[in-house]
């Protein structure tokens, strides 16, 4: 049947996309790149579940796809918060509050000489 052939090709393309995204997930080079790759893996997984719903004719898979999209969104937001505030003492304070005593320089929470860059 024509539809099943198209679905098979779609499965193949999505699997290839997942493999390419895993390449980026492994190679990095930094944590933000991996977070973006995880985000895309979430989208591809939603696509896989939608294809499964098409192939099996079970509409309940659609609920799983929507739920996975929700969880992937929350995970991305959580990762973003972690990335922004993972350096100790770098949490933003309201403007105008005095700096902690003994820190004349803008503190990154790292020992002196360590550049404030992502690994």
């Amino acid at each position: 049947m024509f539809l099943s052939a198209l679905l098979a090709v779609s499965y193949g393309l999505l699997a290839l996309a997942l493999a390419l995204t895993l390449v980026r997930l492994v190679r990095g080079p930094g944590l933000p790149d991996r977070v973006v790759a995880l985000d895309l893996i979430g989208f591809i997984a939603v696509g896989f579940i939608a294809l499964t719903a098409l192939q099996t004719g079970v509409a309940a898979f659609l609920d799983a796809a929507v739920t996975l999209a929700l969880i992937a969104f929350v995970a991305s937001i959580g990762f973003a918060r972690y990335l922004e505030y993972r350096v100790p003492d770098a949490r933003p304070r309201p403007t105008g509050t005095p700096r902690p005593a003994g820190s004349s320089q803008p503190s990154t929470g790292l020992p002196p000489g360590v550049p404030h860059v992502a690994p």
Partner: peptide, 27 residues
């Protein structure tokens, strides 16, 4: 109906192609 199933298959194929383009871009 055959029309709807063909349309759904083509939409799925185009969606998979866009997912592949996204993965190519990310690499």
């Amino acid at each position: 109906s055959p029309l709807l199933s063909t349309l759904a298959g083509v939409l799925a194929l185009v969606g998979a192609i866009f997912a592949l383009i996204a993965a190519l871009g990310i690499v």
